[in-house]
Design a protein around this nucleic acid. Structure first.
Lengths: 225, 225
DNA sequence: CGGCGAATTGAATCGTATCAACGATGGTGG
DNA sequence: CCACCATCGTTGATACGATTCAATTCGCCG
C-alpha cells in the first residue's frame, strides 16, 4: 500500500499541499509532491488499484510488473532517478510498481497534475511528451521481445543501462538476474549463461556479478541488433 | 512517401487548410485534416522520417513496423478505423506505417494539433489520454511477447480482434498469417499450426482462412492467459 | 565459521523455428 | 471463360535455442 505520511522534512513548502515540496516532473513542469521512501521489493502501487497519483523517482530504482495467473512475471520497465511512472489513461493502474532497491519517490496527486496542465500549456505539452516518450521505449521493448535472440536482448539491456548511467564504461546492475530475465522475457539461467559468454568473448568484463565493464562499446552495439 | 494532395472532395471546409475537412480525433478534439488513401502495403510513413503529421484511420487497417538490419520484422500495432497513429515524442518516426488493406487516413498537421492543444484544454487532455492508452496497449503486448506461449498469443490476438469488431462471434482477420506472426513474435508456420489446433479443439471454427468463428468466448478467454 | 540467497554451470528436454513439400485461392491474360 | 501463375496457407520432418531440472559455487551477514 502507498504510504503518503512517511516522515519527511520538506525543503520548500508548496502552500496547498501540507508537508509538500516542489519537484520538477519534466522540463517545464514544477509541481507539488510529497516524497515517500520504499524498502527493497516494497510495493508502490498494485495492478488494479485506483490511479490517484503519478510518481517521480528521486533516487533508487523502480520496476513495473504484470503477473499472469500462474505466476509468470513480465517487467514492463525500469525507472531511474528523474523518470516518471504511473501515468495511466484509465483510472486504474495496469501494472504494479515495486522498489527494486531502497528508493525515494515523489508522489504527485493526479488531480493536481491535471490542474497544472489546465493552467499551463507548457505543462500539458510536457506531460504529453512524457507519455509519448514512454511509448517509444515500449516499442523498442516490443522489438526486443518479439524478434531478438537471448544474446541480443542481453546486449541491448547492457547498452541501455550504460547509456542511462554515468558515461564511463562501467555499468552497475541495480537488479538481480531474475529481474533482468523477467524484463528480457528469458530465464535466470539463460541471462546468466549469456552474460558469461559475453565475458568469455571479452565483449564485457565482470568486476563482480553486478558490475559490468564495457571496454569497447563499439563491439557490443552490433550484438544488440 | 506521403501524398498530401490526393484528389479529395471535402464535405466541409475548415478554413485555414485548403481542401481540408474536420475530423474527430478523439472525443473532444475536432480538427482540420486532409484525407489520403493508400493501397495495400503502401507506406504511409517510414522509420526515421520527420514526424510532421499525426494520422487517424478513417477506414481500412494500418500496421506499424520496425525492421532489424537482417530483415526480421516486428509489428508494433494494428490500427483500425477511429484509431490514431504516428504520435511521436521526438520529431522523428520510430516505426514505419503501412496500409494493411486499402485504406483512408486523415492526415493532421502536428503543428495544427499542437495549436489546438494550446487553445483548448480539453484537446490537450484528450491528446494525453490517447498517448497513455497506446502505452497501456503496448504494455499488454510486452506481456504477450515476453511471457505467453504460442497458443496464448494467438488466443489473445483473436480475442482482441473480436473485441474490436462488431460484437457477434465472427472475426474477420484483415491481415495475413505473416502479419499475425510478426505481431505475435512467431513464425507463419507456428501461427498457422496453432490456429489449426484451436479449430481441431473446437475452440474456434474457420469459415475460411481469414474468417474465424468463436462459438464460445468463455472457452477462448482462459487460453489467452 | 555456518547458513542462506544469488549466481553459475551442466545435462536433458521441450517448444518453436527451419526446411521442405503440397494444396488452396485469386488475379491476369490469352 | 478458363488456364496459368503467384501468393498464401497448411502440414510434416528435423534442428536448434532456450527452458527445465539439478548440482555447485559465490558472496554476504549473523
Amino acid at each position: 500500500m502507498l504510504v503518503l505520511d512517511t516522515p519527511f522534512h520538506p525543503k520548500t513548502s508548496a502552500g496547498s499541499v501540507p508537508g509538500a515540496r516542489l519537484v520538477v516532473l519534466a522540463p517545464g513542469i514544477e509541481i507539488a509532491a510529497v516524497v515517500s521512501t520504499f524498502a527493497r521489493d516494497e510495493e508502490i502501487f498494485g495492478e488494479g488499484e485506483i490511479a490517484r497519483h503519478v510518481f517521480l523517482v528521486m533516487n533508487g530504482v523502480v520496476r513495473t510488473c504484470r503477473i499472469l495467473a500462474d505466476g509468470r512475471r513480465q517487467i514492463g520497465e525500469f525507472y531511474f532517478p528523474g523518470d516518471v511512472f504511473g501515468l495511466e489513461p484509465n483510472d486504474v493502474h495496469g501494472s504494479s510498481a515495486e522498489a527494486l532497491a531502497p528508493c525515494a519517490v515523489a508522489v504527485i496527486k493526479r488531480a493536481e497534475l491535471e490542474q497544472e496542465a489546465v493552467r499551463n500549456t507548457e505543462s500539458a505539452r510536457a506531460l504529453w511528451e512524457l507519455a509519448a516518450r514512454q511509448l517509444a521505449r515500449a516499442q523498442e521493448h516490443i522489438l526486443l521481445l518479439g524478434r531478438k535472440t537471448a544474446r541480443e536482448r542481453v546486449a541491448s539491456l547492457l547498452l541501455d543501462l550504460a547509456d542511462r548511467g554515468d558515461g564511463n564504461g562501467t555499468v552497475r546492475l541495480p537488479m538481480s538476474r531474475a529481474d533482468m530475465a523477467d524484463y528480457l522475457g528469458l530465464t535466470i539461467e539463460t541471462v546468466s549463461r549469456t552474460i558469461s559468454e559475453l565475458a568469455r568473448d571479452g565483449t564485457i568484463r565482470l568486476a563482480d556479478s553486478r558490475t559490468v565493464v564495457i571496454p569497447n562499446r563499439g563491439r557490443l552495439v552490433p550484438l544488440a541488433a
